[in-house]
Each structure stands twice: as C-alpha cells, then as structure tokens.
C-alpha cells in the first residue's frame, strides 16, 4: 500500500500530500502522524495540501481529527496551501474545519506555528543559543 512520507523539521513535522487520497490511505496517515507526534514530541504539524484537488467530508474529518489529537499532545496543526476551488467546495459542503489552523503556504505556516507555540522557556532559550 502507498504511504505518505512524514518529514521531521526541528520541532515540527511536515507532511506534503501529493496524491488524491482514498479513505484507507488517509486513515493510515492519521495513524502514522499521531504516532510520530508522540514519538518525537513535536510541537507542530504542518500539512501541505496544495497539490490536493479534492477534500471531501471524510478527508475533512481526518484533518480535524489530526488537529484535535495533536492538540491533546500539545502540538498545533496547520493546514497550508488549500486551493481556492477546494475552499469554496468545503464551505458549500458545510465543513469549516474548526480547530484546524490554516496558512497560505509552508513558509507562512511555519511562522504561524512559531507564533502559536509562542514562548520558549528561559533555560531552553539559552540552550538554543548554545547550540547555534
């Protein structure tokens, strides 16, 4: 079965969906992603759907699930790059993806995640400086 790769970038996880998903693949992604959040203690999840031409109610539910599950594990989820036609269709369908943050592109999504996570504890900041 196909698998969607998950990349780890610092404290964030990045998923770029390049193919149209069928249900089982989407469920597998949800599962892999949540396991990955737990394993890496990621603070943010970035899902790039700019290449996705359709988001239906099932896919919408998966995105919502990922956001809620990550939230419990203290990670924020941002969906980036939604196509205009997909956004219009989702609204008409009646799905507004509450709980999921959105951004125009990966760069703005990263920025949003950093803002959402906000503060870094004092010691950690020092630690960061040392590493850099």
């Amino acid at each position: 079965m196909d698998k969607i790769p998950i990349l780890k970038m610092g404290e964030f996880l990045l998923v770029t969906i390049q193919v149209d998903l069928y249900d089982r693949l989407a469920l597998a992604l949800e599962n892999d992603l949540i396991n990955m959040v737990s394993k890496t203690e990621a603070r943010g999840v970035l899902i790039d759907i700019s290449a996705v031409s359709i988001v239906d109610s099932f896919m919408g539910r998966i995105l919502g699930n990922i956001a809620s599950m990550s939230k419990i594990m203290d990670a924020e989820t941002v969906v980036v790059g939604m196509q205009p036609a997909v956004a219009i269709t989702l609204v008409e369908l009646g799905l507004t993806l509450t709980g999921v943050h959105t951004a125009l592109d990966v760069e703005k999504g990263m920025e949003l995640l950093r803002n959402k996570i906000g503060y870094l504890p004092k010691e950690e900041e020092d630690l960061y400086d040392d590493i850099i």
Partner: peptide, 8 residues
C-alpha cells in the same frame, strides 16, 4: 470550482 464541486 464546478469540477471540484462535482467530484467532491
């Protein structure tokens, strides 16, 4: 948009 609505 029409296409996307139809396939959705």
């Amino acid at each position: 948009v029409g296409q996307t609505k139809l396939i959705t």
